[in-house]
Design a protein around this nucleic acid. Structure first.
Lengths: 419, 419
DNA sequence: CTGTTAGCGCCTTCAA
DNA sequence: TTGAAGGCGCTAACAG
């Protein structure tokens, strides 16, 4: 018999009551392992005479019926509090009792009701990831999903779950985010990429009193622990390498104005240029990107601008790979030799870069470690026993030196060679 | 004054008690809008003499202190149930009362405690997305993040949240997934891509009694509503188009063996070939991919195999874009003209395809609609009033006809031209 | 239309 | 070491 219909349940409940068994908890006459008794909820409803209601409900499916802690307690012949203890602090329960309880848990397939637990202890084990507007697809585009994946895995290993809060199309969605935090659903938050912290009216994420970690963007100045890649240093080193090869003029394809990565990466370029004693005018800046998405479009436009230049720089530095790839493709189709006439370098480490013609030199973001580190820091913030985590963690990008960069044809002027 | 320290609170609590105010709820003498009373939790603790405990706790921060429904009720001078009703069924409350309540809610910045609500009503508004092993990065690689994004947005518009359950590295993570479902945390699940439904011991996702929607893979045979792209038809049409151009032999770059998309897409190719009366031998199948990840590697290997063929097919059909791109790049570097000597077609619609040399003809998956549709169906399943959703929803891919396909140079034999 | 009341399932304190 | 009891914040049935 797979289903116990509700009428059977009700009859049994009534019988149990007539025979003087305690009416609410533990009907007492039922075979517990068969889960052949209804929940007290229904008992009570029945007692109140709302019989039709119960009968009208779906029959109880043995497959999906989930036992309660008191079922376990009854089967193991202990009190619920003992079961609770056995599961939470196994050390404080008699070994033999504990074994009985564990056996009962296994037999019934008991899983604690998380909602009740959350209510009781006042916290949850859910962590929120806040993504910026066109979310997964925007911002540092390719890498967001990988980072997210890494965050989710790390959290899962510690028993936490990750909910994705995309910043919404509508104000309602926007309101959602602080509400999640304030409503006690969420225990901590990881904010990805360049967004203002969500707020709605007088509720704000920052004011929700939950730990926040910033990922990919440095918010350590605001006191928010941040995990970032070393965008600036990586770019500086890469450009210094180009300068070492003999390049003296640069075409920079800028990302969306005001974006954190754009600012940092350009700063890296500028620092390298000025550190070598070159004038600012060694850099020609191409603006126009509105987002990191559609980088290919930006790359094509940049190529058009580049091709129209009277004195073309010998190196193109792109804020992100997509633009670099499209740029490179376009200028090559106009008979610009890469890397002979023009070196190109991107940023992000998109896998496709290795399969361009020529393979694209780029700076690979440490996606997995970024995500894992941010998750670890959040976990540390949630664990009151853990040490205070660092307010700023910088992880290095990897310089993937490929065939799109070389010494300029015109002649590598003598310059201190850099490794 | 920004902080109210706990001592102040405690004193006030005691005073309130001495003056005969009800000791538990609603201290009564406090200025509510100032939130200058502690929660009953603390009152009780104080009453029980655990004074030191309270004092030892963090002071109450006005910024993060969240008021309860009874605070709102008190401020609006109604009962909590009325507040509850006003927020849930506004129609069943007097207009004037409702306004007072709303005002109080605004004034206090009240946000309902979701954990308590979940416990009480027995459900939550969280939906789970189950991803296959290397999750976001694997499977139909590029498109998973976009699909997920679309799912999340659609759910958010209906007030649902999305938690990401990556299938774990460890058994513990695996166990996690059914537990989430059974533990009442999750109200429904969307399973993405090709995975077995998670299970652990006698707990399984399928047996958790929550609605499940399958996305990207057709599980309608198992009674699970599925949302899929028309992989097979799209591929068939595309190949028929190639045949219409005059191609008679095909090199197929297969995806991971046994994968749903691989099977469907190859079937589409085979159907088109046999429908035109060509022999099976018109297809040369290149196997070897272990996952969709590292498609570039697969493409390169496939190219090597292709180049070694004595009689080279005039068209290459790839199961996914990455492999097609790497394949095309490699054969071109060996002086194979594309599309002159060889037409290449991919699958997925990766944006980078438009910027290859030559731009790659491909079949674009309707990522946004796939995600949105799956979310809608899940929402319908969760809404008992909604109509039974279709068990299988097929969304069409878009044929992006670009420069990598053309009539074979050898001569387009007469064939019924297809549009 | 509104107030009273009784739990949702679990954890935790207190007493035995 | 164990059991009994009470309440976390909210909702919904029921009675005015």
């Amino acid at each position: 018999m797979k289903f116990l219909d509700c009428w059977t349940c009700f009859v049994a409940i009534i019988q149990a009551r007539r025979s003087g068994a305690p009416p609410i908890h533990g009907i007492g006459r039922w075979s517990l392992p068969a889960m052949a008794y209804h929940r007290p909820k229904a008992c009570k409803a029945a007692r109140r005479g709302r019989i039709r209601r119960i009968m009208g409900r779906r029959p109880i499916d043995h497959e999906t019926f989930s036992p309660l802690m008191r079922d376990v307690a009854k089967l193991a012949d202990v009190a619920t509090s003992t079961v609770s203890r056995a599961l939470a602090n196994p050390g404080r329960v008699n070994e033999k009792t504990r074994c009985r309880i564990i056996a009962a848990v296994e037999q019934l397939g008991y899983v604690p009701n998380a909602a009740a637990r959350n209510l009781r202890v006042g916290t949850s084990d859910i962590v929120m990831a806040v993504l910026s507007q066109p979310a997964v697809a925007n911002d540092a585009s390719q890498i967001i999903p990988e980072v997210l994946q890494s965050v989710a895995s790390t959290l899962a290993d510690s028993g936490f779950n990750l909910v994705i809060a995309s910043r919404g199309r509508s104000a309602a969605t926007e309101k959602h985010i602080p509400d999640l935090a304030i409503g006690g659903i969420v225990r901590g938050a990881i904010v990805l990429g360049s967004t203002e912290l969500p707020s709605y009216g007088r509720r704000s994420l920052a004011g929700a009193g939950i730990p926040i970690v910033s990922l990919l963007e440095d918010r350590s100045a605001a006191g928010i622990p941040s995990v970032v890649a070393n965008d600036r240093e990586a770019m500086r080193e890469a450009v210094l390498h180009l300068i070492g090869l003999g390049h003296r003029s640069f075409f920079y394809i800028a990302g969306p104005a005001g974006n954190y990565h754009e600012i940092e990466r350009f700063a890296g370029l500028a620092e390298a240029v000025s550190a070598t004693g070159l004038s600012d005018r060694a850099i020609i800046r191409h603006e126009g990107a509105r987002s990191f998405q559609n980088g290919f479009q930006t790359g094509i436009e940049a190529a058009r601008v580049y091709l129209a230049l009277k004195r073309r720089p010998t190196a193109a530095v792109s804020c992100w790979d997509d633009a670099a790839i499209a740029f490179m493709g376009t200028v090559r189709s106009q008979r610009v030799a890469v890397p002979g006439g023009l070196s190109v370098i991107g940023f992000d480490g998109a896998p496709v870069g290795a399969f361009c013609q020529p393979p694209l030199t780029t700076l690979q973001q440490p996606t997995a470690s970024l995500g894992a580190k941010a998750a670890e820091i959040l976990l540390a913030l949630l664990d009151r026993d853990a040490a205070e985590p660092p307010v700023k963690t910088v992880l290095p990008c990897r310089h993937l030196l490929r065939a799109s960069t070389a010494a300029p044809k015109g002649g590598a002027r003598k310059a201190s060679k850099r490794p």
